[in-house]
Amino acid sequence: MFLPFCTFFWILTGVSATFHPLSDEFIAQINENQTHWTAGRNFKISEWARVIQMASGVRFHHRLPRPSLLRTNKEIPEHFDSREKWPHCASLFRIWDQSHCGSCWAVSAAATMSDRICIHSSQNLQISVSAEDLLSCCHQCGTGCLGGEIPRAWHYWRTTGIVTGGLYNSTAQGCRAYSLPPCEHHVPIQRRPHCDTLKLETPSCKLECDDSQLNYEDSLTFGGEVRHFVQPEEIQREIMENGPVEGAIEVYEDFFSYKSGVYKRTSSGTYIGGHAVKILGWGVENGVPYWLCANSWNKDWGDGGYFKIVRGENHCAVEEEVYASVPEFAQENRDDLRWI
């Protein structure tokens, strides 16, 4: 049985032998044991069972074959941020809230697809790909809020297509908006309803738009050949050329308390599961190379919704499950963009 929410596999092996993973003592222990990153309180101890579920939505098996990749000799800079190269793509600056659902695999895919549509339209098409449509209708991807597989999400974009649609209650952004409301994952509780008050249920697959005046078929977007990137240099060149990619990390209990700096698992951390994220850049901080990633636990978590993780050593499997494709338009000259 797979736990709901977002992180891969499904078994918790235990917690710290000394302190609870969400306790002030455990957070202090993290900060005492290393200097690369700073931990702080993001969750209450009483939320532990739900937090585990929230980080258990990616399955790391049944990968698609890896096609051959085009290689370039473009020099790789020390620092790169997709938001700086393509500043007019609004989706690049958006942090999602996956709500109480284990939909990280779908949310991070849709966010990355949206970025790539804008990038490959010369920053003209501000289209959001519907995480709702992918989450609810891609049955071969997994089991909705109980987890899914990243490569199958991208393959679904290529073979079936995914309609437009943005964040919760954003009907103006496309065909099917995300129907699960933002909820409070963090402390102190404010602004949003608490996640525990919401019913965990995958939305139904509906081949129709929220607005009856929009046509579902006309709202479909498509991607091209699915690519799997393994080497750090491949991932970097792909981001430089085509935009952010979707990846996944193995989550350990110390990750929930991340606030800033370059995350590296502490020796006291216990493995929890697998979580999908968007990788949008890289850099070096205090001599430590890192990947810049966008999470989907709203802006209250981490560094405004973002985090950095050690680059170049497949830390927490961050370089193992990286996929993306390029959007497919009907006309290569992009003068009159239409989907195939």
Rank of each mutant, 00 (worst) to 15 (best):
P327T: 08
R237F: 01
M54I: 11
V245I: 13
S108L: 03
R63C: 10
H194Q: 14
E208R: 12
S179L: 12
G161R: 06
G304S: 06
I279R: 00
T160C: 10
M240F: 03
S260P: 01
S99K: 05
Q231G: 00
R116W: 05
A106C: 08
E328R: 15
E319F: 07
E328A: 15
V230D: 08
G247P: 03
C6I: 09
A49S: 13
G269Q: 05
A55N: 15
K259N: 06
K259Y: 01
R71G: 01
S257T: 11
Y258R: 02
N33R: 11
L280P: 00
C89G: 01
H194P: 01
N215L: 10
C137W: 03
I150N: 01
G224S: 10
R265D: 03
Y156D: 02
C316E: 14
G247W: 02
P77F: 04
C104K: 03
K85A: 13
C6R: 08
S204V: 12
G14Q: 06
E328W: 11
H185N: 09
H62G: 04
H275K: 08
M54F: 11
M1V: 13
S267M: 09
T266H: 09
L180Y: 02
K199C: 09
C137Y: 04
G57H: 04
V15L: 07
G287E: 04
R83N: 09
E84L: 12
S56D: 10
T270L: 10
Q126M: 09
S82R: 00
D303H: 08
D303L: 11
T112E: 08
E25W: 03
E225L: 13
G243Y: 01
V163T: 15
P182I: 02
I127S: 07
S82T: 12
T18D: 13
V318E: 04
S325T: 15
W154I: 05
Q213R: 14
G166C: 06
Y156G: 01
E84D: 12
H62W: 11
K199E: 14
K299R: 14
F9A: 12
Y156I: 03
Y263G: 00
P4K: 04
V288I: 15
L92E: 00
H20W: 04
G247R: 04
Y168A: 06
A248V: 04
I11E: 12
F5K: 09
F307C: 04
E233S: 14
M1C: 10
A131Q: 10
E320R: 15
E332F: 09
Y178L: 08
P188G: 06
F2H: 11
T35L: 08
S108R: 02
I239Y: 00
V15G: 01
A177R: 06
I27P: 02
P67A: 08
D97W: 05
Q123L: 01
G40D: 13
P65C: 09
H228E: 11
C6P: 01
F329V: 04
E234F: 07
P4W: 09
G102Q: 07
E217T: 13
L214E: 11
D133Q: 08
W105R: 05
L64H: 06
V245N: 00
Q140A: 14
T38K: 14
C6S: 15
S56M: 11
H62N: 14
